[in-house]
Amino acid sequence: MKHFAKIVALAVTLALPVAAQDAPQSTADGARAAASALEAASARLANASSAEDRIAALTETLHAYENGLNALRDGLRRVAIRKSTLMTTFNARAGEIGSLLATMQMMERTPPQLHMLHPSGPVGTLRAGILMADIAPALDAEAATLRAQLQELQDLEVLQNSAATTLEQGLQGAQSAREELSQALSNRTDLPLRFTEDPVAMSLLLSSSETLGAFASGLAQTIDSEIAEMDTDAWNRMGRLALPVTGEILRRFNEEDAAGTRRPGLVIATRPQAMVTSPIAATIRFVGPLLDMGVVVILEPAPNVLFIMAGLDQGFGTVGQIIPEDTPVGLMGGSTPDGDALLMQANQGNAQNLSETLYLEVREGQSAVDPAAWFALGQQ
Rank of each mutant, 00 (worst) to 15 (best):
Lys2Gly: 09
Ile7Trp: 11
Val8Ala: 10
Val8Gly: 01
Val18Thr: 13
Ser26His: 02
Ala28Cys: 08
Asp29Ser: 13
Asp29Thr: 07
Asp29Val: 00
Ala31His: 03
Arg32Lys: 08
Ala40Leu: 07
Ser42Gln: 14
Arg54Val: 07
Ile55Glu: 04
Ala57Gly: 10
Tyr65Gln: 05
Ala71Cys: 08
Arg73Lys: 11
Gly75Asp: 01
Arg82Met: 11
Lys83Tyr: 00
Thr88Arg: 13
Phe90Ser: 06
Ala92Pro: 00
Ala92Arg: 13
Gly95Ile: 13
Ser99Val: 01
Ala102Arg: 10
Met107Phe: 13
Met107Cys: 03
Met116Tyr: 07
Ser120Met: 08
Gly124Thr: 03
Gly124Asn: 10
Leu126Cys: 01
Leu131Ser: 06
Leu131Met: 07
Met132Arg: 14
Ala133Thr: 05
Asp134Ile: 06
Pro137Glu: 04
Leu139Lys: 02
Asp140Val: 06
Glu142Ala: 15
Ala143Pro: 00
Ala148Glu: 10
Glu152Trp: 12
Leu153Gly: 08
Gln154Pro: 00
Leu156Ser: 04
Gln160Pro: 01
Thr165Met: 09
Thr166Gln: 10
Gly170Ser: 03
Gly170Glu: 06
Gln172Lys: 15
Gly173Leu: 01
Ala184Gln: 07
Leu185Pro: 05
Pro192Met: 08
Leu193Asn: 03
Phe195Ala: 13
Ala201Val: 03
Ser207Pro: 00
Ser208Thr: 09
Ser208Gln: 14
Ser208Met: 08
Ser209Gln: 02
Ser209Ala: 13
Glu210Ser: 08
Glu210Asp: 09
Ser217Gln: 14
Leu219Lys: 00
Leu219Thr: 01
Ala220Cys: 02
Ala220Val: 05
Thr222Asp: 00
Thr232Gln: 05
Trp235Val: 15
Leu243Ser: 06
Thr246Gln: 14
Glu248Cys: 08
Glu255Trp: 09
Asp257Gly: 09
Ala259Glu: 10
Ala259Asp: 10
Thr261Gln: 15
Arg263Phe: 01
Gln273Phe: 02
Thr277Arg: 14
Ala281Gln: 12
Ile284Ala: 05
Phe286Met: 00
Gly288Met: 03
Pro289Asn: 06
Leu291Glu: 00
Gly294Asp: 03
Ile298His: 14
Glu300Asn: 05
Phe307Ser: 05
Asp313Met: 04
Gln314His: 12
Gln314Arg: 12
Asp326Asn: 15
Pro328Thr: 02
Pro328Met: 02
Leu331Gln: 04
Leu331Glu: 10
Leu331Tyr: 15
Gly333Arg: 09
Leu343Asn: 13
Ala346Cys: 12
Gln348Ser: 13
Gly349Ala: 10
Ala351Arg: 03
Asn353Gly: 09
Leu360Cys: 04
Val362Glu: 00
Gly365Leu: 07
Val369Thr: 11
Ala373Tyr: 06
Trp374Asn: 05
Phe375Val: 01
Leu377Thr: 03
Gly378Gln: 04
